[in-house]
Amino acid sequence: MTKLMLLGQFKVDKVKDTVSIYGTEINSRLLVGSALYPSPQIMQEAIKASAAEVVTLSISRQNPLQNGGQNFWNIIQSLGVNLLPNTAGCHSVKDAVNMAKMSREIFQTDWVKLELVGDDYNLQPDPIDLVKATEILLNDGFKVLPYCTDDLVIARHLVELGCEVLMPWGSPIGTGKGLLNPYALQAIRDRFPDITLIVDSGIGLPSHAVQAMEMGVDAILLNTAIAHSNQPQQMAEAFKKSIEAGRTAYLAGPMTEQKSAQPSTPTIDSPFWHNHG
């Protein structure tokens, strides 16, 4: 990726504004999940409408009586997207590492969205075990995309281990609450300007995605907000547009907020100016 200019402290490529995932350049800044859709057909249509180039998926015990998930697998393959397997549901380092290794064999990718649940109430990532599992997987050749909280120090540990991508939460999975702590996300963005920062989970509305993108976040990963919409295909389009809008606004650079009103219309030579005290 050619770096042509600096905007603030963030590097921006004006020629081709792509997002890098361990050296793979992705055009779309919207990554989507493949779960919770009303039907496989609607999933397919929504993913196409999102223009996502990265789709998350998972693994579970196969049931040959139900065709072993072949219908889903065939649809996903037909989309021609980059696959990002997750380790959803893992509560221990051992389980997460095993799941990552199985996913690598099945999907033929060394990318892994590393999820390690620390508490079932809010599905909050376990920051300590996440760091341990990340180290094991990076040493085993994985390209780890850790799903983490917005804690700056955990982010620093992950970066120091060699993570080139961080995926902090906006809010807990499936809540749709948006960005609960914009300050914390901004701190991670500012502290690690060269890391690919993807807000993962909690995004409920396109306006949430715009807010994150305007902050300089590189991309958004979401699932429920599209899949649980009344019209997933339409909502996928809405998110696509919102993320493009937020990114463009970030590149353009915002105005400076003012404490008091500033007239937008020139008042010099106004015939009415003398009427006011």
Binding site: A35, L36, L57, I59, S60, R61, G69, F72, N86
Partner: peptide, 10 residues
């Protein structure tokens, strides 16, 4: 023995 395959995921 656990045999695992692809499923939907977020």
């Amino acid at each position: 023995v656990d045999v695992v395959g692809a499923i939907q995921g977020g």
